[in-house]
């Protein structure tokens, strides 16, 4: 028996080693490798509680293994164990020690809970209004007059204050590498803050089941140096120009086919703002930003993202489709 037990222990150990070394997570969405203050605080607490619990586990497992080996019934043995009732001293020991341990754990927990909840924007922080939709994210910078979707740009080193709104169902805003999540709740405004300590691209996820496309409701956070961030803001405020004839035709097609949803005429049928579509790096938050993928999406959105609310734009001729694509890609 003990040999089989040993095998099991080995198996679990090797799995842990494998998971830790062989296939470690990617820094763009790894909770264990945070790039933001909130994520670091959370990781501190995760590690602190993990090692405390590991200590408890070690004690339990030591007694467990000892008991199983020492007191197993041996061949031919037939003794009568003493029928003990218990031990008040031991009971007190294993009641009091956990209480003390949990007390120790409770102090930083409460501390961090209040720290992370303190999301009042100060003069220096960037304010962003986040709205979760089925199945895309809308980002609006009320102080900068910029509106975008699927991609959140933030300056490195600045506190970003998020105001989280919901319109349809529950979602949850999560950027694993920067910090924990906050739920998107229709009819309620939640707040949270995060920052990025180094420039980079971070993956964002929807973490609350929101329907058929939930798994693909991704977004990206770009952390830029402040100067680059300012440049991005300036670019976003500059209206894109319509240059070629094909783009002109594309604009006509856009006005005829897309404006209903993509210009916010009907709030129930709101699609992402596309006025700066050319600057994006993904189509629908998941596909690489190429003309080919854009056409694929236009022809059948539901094939790319199940449950997507956008109707198929499969009735255009090839030329029209090319023109529309070119127009959209030129929105920089």
């Amino acid at each position: 028996m003990s040999r089989q037990r040993l095998w099991r222990a080995l198996l679990v150990f090797s799995l842990a080693a494998l998971a830790l070394s062989g296939c470690s997570g990617d820094p763009s969405l790894n909770v264990l490798e945070p790039s933001g203050t909130a994520g670091e605080k959370q990781l501190n607490l995760i590690m602190w509680s993990f090692f405390l619990m590991l200590g408890v586990f070690a004690v339990v497992i030591t007694i467990f293994v000892y008991v199983l080996i020492r007191f197993r019934k041996r061949k031919g043995q037939d003794r009568m164990p003493e029928q003990t009732h218990g031990s008040t001293l031991l009971e007190i020991v294993w009641t009091v020690i956990p209480i003390v341990l949990l007390g120790i754990l409770a102090v930083p927990t409460v501390n961090y809970t209040f720290e992370l909840a303190d999301a009042k924007p100060d003069e220096d922080s960037i304010r962003v209004k986040v709205t979760g939709h089925q199945y895309w994210w809308e980002f609006e910078y009320p102080d900068l007059g910029v509106k975008t979707a699927q991609e959140l740009y933030i300056p490195v080193g600045k506190k970003v204050h998020l105001e989280i709104h919901g319109k349809d169902v529950l979602h949850s805003f999560w950027v694993p590498a920067l910090g924990g999540k906050t739920d998107v709740i229709p009819g309620r405004v939640n707040t949270m803050w995060l920052d990025a300590k180094k420039p980079g691209k971070y993956q964002g996820k929807c973490a609350e089941l929101c329907g058929a496309g939930h798994a693909l409701m991704d977004f990206v956070v770009y952390a830029k140096e402040p100067a680059e961030f300012d440049k991005w803001v300036a670019q976003m405020k500059q209206p894109a120009k319509v240059a070629t004839a094909a783009q002109k035709e594309g604009e006509q097609l856009f006005l005829q086919n897309c404006m209903g949803c993509h210009a916010g005429v009907n709030p129930k049928l709101q699609g992402p703002d596309l006025s700066k579509f050319g600057t994006r790096t993904t189509i629908a938050g998941i596909l690489p930003h190429t003309e080919e993928n854009l056409k694929k999406w236009l022809k059948n959105p539901e094939a790319v993202k199940p449950g997507a609310k956008m109707p198929k734009i499969d009735y255009l001729t090839q030329e029209e489709l090319d023109a529309l694509t070119e127009y959209l890609m030129s929105r920089k």
Binding site: Q42, S49, L105, Y112, W174, K181, A207
Partner: peptide, 18 residues
């Protein structure tokens, strides 16, 4: 063990629904 870890709200902001 993971139950106690999940009980800590700041850490849970990371674990929740994952």
């Amino acid at each position: 063990m993971t139950g106690v870890m999940l009980a800590l709200p700041p850490a849970d902001y990371q674990y929740q629904d994952s």
